[in-house]
């Protein structure tokens, strides 16, 4: 039996009050409890940067759904991270329009600048590089997304400038705290 064999962290011990409050709000506007799954994942990710196994199990327990089902949701969406990611996650569009307008060069430049491959995070923990199938900006391709920001009509230089800037902001913020 499920309950017996699977030891789950108790959600009230694991999830913070702030997280629980936000999840509760989502539950209240959904038809069923488990329908809040996607939002709950987003909420916890917003607080913690990514969804660890423990987070996943805690959310599943809280929503009274199976961890298998929630894992299905979590791994289906490419904006839910099931591994630790850097402060900035770069989603570089690799679909056809971007391919036609210089994606390859942008990718090469980004990889070289950061010294990482797809799926990796820089040593300083700032950047993670991921591919993304279409960001919906074909008319302004090549495109990438970092956080909630879209960067369009990229060239290798432009892309690196953007990364430089982000690095600077991160440094100055890091100095503040």
């Amino acid at each position: 039996m499920n309950i017996v064999n699977q030891v789950m962290p108790h959600p009230n011990n694991y999830l913070t009050d702030a997280e629980l409050a936000q999840i509760d709000h989502e539950i209240s506007i959904m038809e069923t409890r488990e329908a809040a799954g996607i939002e709950a994942l987003k909420i916890v990710q917003a607080h913690r940067g990514w969804i660890s196994d423990d987070s996943l199990l805690a959310i599943a327990h809280y929503l009274q759904m199976s961890s298998a089902e929630l894992e299905g949701v979590a791994t289906f969406y490419n904006l839910i991270y099931r591994q630790p990611v850097g402060k900035f996650v770069i989603h570089l569009c690799n679909s056809v329009s971007c391919h036609l307008t210089g994606y390859a060069e942008v990718l090469a430049a980004v990889k070289q600048y950061l010294g990482i491959e797809y799926g990796q995070t820089t040593q300083d923990g700032l950047f993670t590089l991921l591919s993304n199938a279409c960001l919906g900006g074909c008319d302004k391709s090549p495109v990438m997304m970092i956080g909630s920001e879209h960067y369009q009509q990229l060239t290798p230089d432009l892309a690196i400038d953007i990364l430089e800037q982000l690095k600077q902001t991160a440094k100055s913020h890091g100095g503040d705290s």
Binding site: S66, A68, F76
Partner: peptide, 19 residues
Amino acid sequence: GDDFGVYGSKNQVYFGRQQ
């Protein structure tokens, strides 16, 4: 059964348990 599911998307679709 609730301990079996489908994970991932596109060309990376995986069928199995969560753990």
